[in-house]
Structure formats: structure tokens, C-alpha cells
Amino acid sequence: MAVESAKSETVFPVISSAMPHDYFQLLKPRVMSLVIFTALVGMLLAPGEINWLIGFVAILCISIGAGASGALNMWYDADIDAVMARTAKRPIPLGKIDRSQALSFGVVLSFFSVMTMGVVVNWLAAALLAFTIFFYAVIYTMWLKRSTPQNIVIGGAAGAFPPMIGWAAVTGNISFESVVLFAIIFLWTPPHFWALALFRLQDYENAHVPMMPNVHGEARTRLEIFIYSLLLGIASVLPTALGFASLAYGLVAAALGGWFALLGFRVWKEGSKDNGYVREKKLFRFSIFYLFVIFAALAADALITTAVAYYG
């Protein structure tokens, strides 16, 4: 009886039933796809050449490094993820992977992605990648996210680094052009996330995350969305103004930037809980389309310019 009792009280180790795709979910694959895309555009725009295999490894390292920082984010934010509807189905809140496994996974992938980047591509790109992971996992996740409504403004830098890393992978340096690519994503982040924060207000409130609408109110958030929309419109035409993108790109960027600013203006003037946050939802959806098209246009521009120079 005593033995039976001791056996029943024994704490058995949890034997994981996590499948590989659960670990893949830790990498935030949707964010990763955007990272891959913007890093690739950074590489295409950079002057100079890179061997296709080395370029492939650079993209792989950037995507795995970004994924690793996503895993570290899920490790640290498991408590927040569990109470938010948007994140409650992530592998840790669902109990498929425990926090220590996510931490190990994130650390190992961070180490391998940075070291491989350094050995195979160059050490500047590796240092930028390491800084990006550190910025997202430590500066944003552990510090800013829970302490200031400017969390996603400053933290947005982490999402803006990939094209700069792609550029550094090809050229071995950081130039003003790569800073412009950084600025486009950096200025895009606040209107994108604050539009989401407005119609997910209660979610962030429940999780005690100090997003702009929860701390400073909806009116100020809407005004700042509009201001950032204007700044984004200006930043997105800089590639043409500075001469590293064509006039055709500039026209596309100006049209899209104008539309973005108009939607931002409508959020500021007409956005309201009473109409079901329809303006905010519209801006949020458009912001995803906007970033994709802006970077696709930059990529197309670079490819056409290269083709004309080669065959022309």
C-alpha cells in the first residue's frame, strides 16, 4: 500500500507529444515569410554580386534567426499568449511544448543561424542578425512590451532590420540606401499594429499589455496613426528621390502612400468603436498589402534595371 502510494505520488517527467510542425509554429512562420521577402529585396537592391548558394544560405540564416527570436518571444510571453484570443492557440498555451523546450530551441537556432551567417556570408551580416535577435527577444519582448506604449514603435526596429541584413550580406557594409529600407518598415509598424490594437483593445487590456490605445486612449492613437501614415508615405518615395529606384516605382509608392495616408486620415476622423472599428480593420488589411506591394515593386524595379543593363 505504501509502495502504491509512493508510486502514485512520483512525479513523472512529461514525455513530449509535440510534432515537428508544433516546433515550426514556434518560429512564427507568417512573420518569417515577410522577413524572407524583405531580406531578399534588400539583397536584390544591393549593388554587387553574391553567389546564389551563399545568397541562399544568407536568406536561410536570416529566416531561421527571425524564427528563433519568435521562439524566444513565445517562451517569455507564454503567460500573455494564453489570455489573448489571437495567440491562445500557439504551441505553449496549448500545452504541446513546454517553455524550457521553446527556450532551448530558440537559443540553439539563434546560435547556429548567427554562426553560420558569419562563417559562410560575412561577420557584419552575422552581427546585425545577432543584434536583431537580441533586440526582439530582450529589448522588445522582455523590456518594452510590458513597460511602455511605445513598445511596438521602438520594437519595430527588429522587424525592420532584415532588408539591411540582406544588403550587408551582399555588400559587406551598411549604406544610406539600406537605412531607407529600414525606415520604410520601421514607420509602417506603428499604424499597422495600432490599427490592430484598436480593434483588439480588450484583448490587450486583459493581458495587461500597455498598448497605445489602452494607455493614452483611442483619440491620440488615431492621430498618431495618421502622422505615421504621412511619414511612411514620404519614406516610401525616398528610393526614387535618392536615385536607387526608378520613377515608375516612385509613382507606385506615391499612389500607395497617398492611399495609406487617406485611410490613416479616415481612422483619425471617422474611426470609432460604434461602427465596429471598420476604418481600423480596413487600414490593418491594407497595411499588409501595402508593405508587400512596396517591396515587390522595389524588387521588380531592381530586376528590370539589371536585365536592361545586361541585355540593353
Binding site: T10, I15, S16, S17, P20
Partner: peptide
């Protein structure tokens, strides 16, 4: 007491399948 040995650990079919899949990955 409080530690485990192979004898008192039962691995379910689902856990075995997952472990195999992780090993392959």
C-alpha cells in the same frame, strides 16, 4: 523516491509517434 526508471514510465502510442517524427525531422 521521486525519480523514474524505464519500468514505471509508460509511453503512449501518440508520444512514440511524435518522438519518431521529431527524430526524423
Amino acid at each position: 523516491e521521486g525519480k523514474y526508471t524505464r519500468e514505471n514510465v509508460e509511453i503512449t502510442e501518440e508520444q512514440l509517434k511524435a518522438r519518431r517524427a521529431r527524430n526524423v525531422a
